[in-house]
């Protein structure tokens, strides 16, 4: 049996050695770090209060964090502003999960329905 297997199994090619490059230290840019820190603070202190109500995936704060980290303070903040302007009640035409929001007297704008309810009533 072992002989049979040894005959039939194709010889395994040697695995090439993987060269791991040392990660270069990222340049410290104060404005970029301040922006990232403020987003992180928002995520820790405020974002959790409203729960999972994001239309987009990833959420705008995560998107902004990644954009600033990748494209720098200037372009990242522009991309974040653009993303915030695209998250609104009319965005249901191109956003798969859509939370319906409404004005509640004394409480301001609140999320009224979860996506599954919205889809059910359509």
């Amino acid at each position: 049996m072992i002989f049979l297997l040894a005959v039939m199994v194709k010889p395994v090619e040697p695995v090439p050695s993987i060269h791991i490059e040392k990660k270069e230290m990222k340049e410290f840019i104060p404005l970029k770090e301040i922006e990232k820190l403020s987003i992180r603070l928002y995520q820790i202190l405020l974002s959790g209060q409203q729960g999972d109500v994001c239309n987009f995936e990833p959420s705008c704060s995560h998107f902004a964090f990644m954009a600033i980290d990748t494209y720098g303070a200037f372009w990242g903040i522009l991309m974040a502003a653009d993303r915030l302007e695209r998250c609104h009640p009319f965005s249901f035409s191109y956003v798969p999960t859509y939370y319906r929001a409404g004005f509640v007297p004394g409480r301001g704008i609140k999320i009224l329905e979860k996506p599954e309810d919205v889809w059910r009533f359509r």
Binding site: A81, D82, L84, E85
Partner: peptide, 13 residues
């Protein structure tokens, strides 16, 4: 200003 700049950039995109 933040939203205004974002709008110009976003319109281009």
């Amino acid at each position: 200003i933040f939203f205004y700049a974002g709008d110009i950039f976003g319109s281009y995109i």
